[in-house]
Every structure is written in C-alpha cells, then in structure tokens.
Design a protein around this nucleic acid. Structure first.
Length: 223
DNA sequence: TCCTGATCATGG
DNA sequence: CCATGATCAGGA
C-alpha cells in the first residue's frame, strides 16, 4: 500500500496538491489500490479521506488541523458546473459545556480556519464519481474582513452556548459560521449547558462555513 | 433552487 | 464514545 509522507511546508503541500489537478478520483484511488464507490451516499467522507492520503495528512480524527506542524487544514470543496461550491463546509465539533468564555484565537475554529488548503472536486450528478476531476488547489488565509466576520459569529454563538441557550440556536444564526447538528442520528445526545445553570442532553453540534461564504472565498481568488 | 436539519462510514 | 471525513433529502 502506497504511503505519502507528510509535507514539510505549506509550499510543498500546495505544490503536491496542484499536481493533483486534472486527475480523476479513479486515477488517485488506483494509486492506493482503492475501489471507487458508485456514489457517496453511504460513504460521505470518501473523497476527503482519499485526498488526505494522497497529500499525507496525519491528524486522523484528532481535534486539530490536518497538518498541525505547518498549520494547514485540508478541505475538499465540491464544485458545480459553474465552478461554485455546492455544500457548506464542516469545520469542527462545538464544545457545549464551556467552563469559561473562550477567546477566538484560542479556539479550535480559529486553529482550523487560519489557513486552509481548498481542493476543488467536481460535484455533478451527470459525471460518475470515478470520473470526477480535481481542480486547482487554493491556499487561503482569511483576510481582515473575513477574519472579523468569523470571529464575531464565533463569539456570538459560543456566548449563547455558554449562557445555556444552545437549543435556541438554529442554522439561521451567523453570517459566515453556523451551528448545526453533527451526529450519526437524532438519538445521539450529549451534555450541554441549559437554562439557569442546569445541564441538559442535546444533539451534538458542529460549526460549518456557510456556502455563501466559501463562494465568496473562491470568487475572491478568481479576481 | 437553496438551505437546514438529519444522516452515513471510519478510526482511535 | 467521540471526532474526523462530509453529503443527503425534504421543506421553505
């Protein structure tokens, strides 16, 4: 089984990612002797995990960036026929039992989003999964305005969690970041702060980047 | 058509 | 069990 060494710098990672441009998912899967599923319905993370292997990501399911030594998070980005992202982007699990107000720059959300390697992958029902191609990778750091937007959303959402109001937060909140369920199913429950200092059981939640936000990120780099 | 809430597989 | 990789699918 082929194994890719972890890149030593963001520049090396970007070069390797750019070298994948134009390849199909079947091309990459073949290098690892993996078969391509017919669709992603039962293996939603398949593409992301394939690309992690192809680029030598090391973190597995640890709660840290994919390339902790060089401070880069890897995200595949499903792209439609117009070149626009089709889905929101998973960031990380949310702590629903905070013991104190967390500072933005100490947060896992910040750690993951301070530098992201976006790897576009065709997402078009008319193209069989195996034939979908990789686009040109983009190494992105939020600009001042984007960072401010992310921080404000993060602080507003986490403050409500800390106040015991998680169950009143819907995916409608937040301009760039949103809080949504993140679980195998509706029956999964975890501890959260509730009203008046109580502890309640609720669905685990995670932070996601809105589709509209990643669209603006991609379009910014087309200019 | 788009978005929110729900869901699927895997590894440690 | 929890966090990772995400996409699915129905309702607005």
């Amino acid at each position: 089984m082929m194994r890719v060494q972890t890149p030593q710098s963001a520049e090396e990672l970007l070069m390797r990612a750019r070298a994948l441009a134009g390849l199909s998912l079947a091309d990459i899967a073949e290098q690892f002797e993996l078969s391509v599923p017919r669709n992603l319905r039962r293996e939603k993370g398949w593409q992301g995990q394939l690309i992690e292997r192809a680029l030598g990501a090391s973190s597995g399911s640890l709660a840290q960036a994919d390339f902790p030594d060089i401070g880069v998070e890897l995200k595949t980005l499903p792209i439609d026929q117009h070149g626009l992202p089709t889905e929101s982007t998973w960031v990380c699990i949310a702590n629903l039992m905070p013991t104190h107000a967390e500072r933005w720059q100490d947060s896992l959300v910040y750690e993951k989003l301070k530098r992201v390697l976006w790897l576009p992958v065709q997402d078009d029902d008319n193209i069989p999964l195996a034939e979908r191609r990789i686009g040109s990778a983009l190494l992105w750091q939020p600009d001042a305005q984007q960072m401010q937007r992310l921080e404000q959303d993060f602080l507003e959402l986490t403050e409500r969690i800390a106040l015991g109001e998680v169950e009143s937060i819907s995916a409608h909140h937040g301009q760039a970041l949103q809080l949504r369920p993140k679980a195998a199913n509706r029956k999964v429950l975890t501890d959260a702060r509730g009203p008046d200092g109580t502890i309640i059981k609720t669905l685990p939640r995670g932070f996601y980047l809105r589709r509209s936000f990643t669209i603006s990120v991609i379009q910014q780099h087309l200019l």
